[in-house]
């Protein structure tokens, strides 16, 4: 897994309080990791904070899994 993937995973574990083993690329935040709609908003904010980029609402709506987040941030991360 890429460095960005590791950092995404760490944020997801921290914010959703889930076992690290469950945070795999195809894990859905809502269906597999127990997040609700507010959790996903906060997750996106945490990604923005960690990677120094802005994630517009229409892009945020397409980030449904751990892998979606990693892919988006590999392209857009500024830090």
């Amino acid at each position: 897994m890429s460095d960005i993937g590791e950092r995404v995973k760490k944020i997801v574990v921290e914010h959703l309080g889930v076992e690290p083993e469950k945070v795999v690329d195809n894990a859905s935040f809502i269906d597999d990791l127990g997040a609700d709609s507010l959790d996903t908003v906060e997750l996106v904010m945490a990604f923005e904070e960690e990677f120094g980029c802005e994630i517009p609402d229409d892009a945020a709506e397409t980030i449904l899994t751990v892998g979606d987040a990693t892919k988006f941030l590999e392209k857009n991360a500024k830090s």
Partner: peptide, 10 residues
């Protein structure tokens, strides 16, 4: 405002 948590109010 973009840094205000969705959990701020609840």
């Amino acid at each position: 405002p973009r840094r205000v948590s969705p959990f701020f109010i609840p």
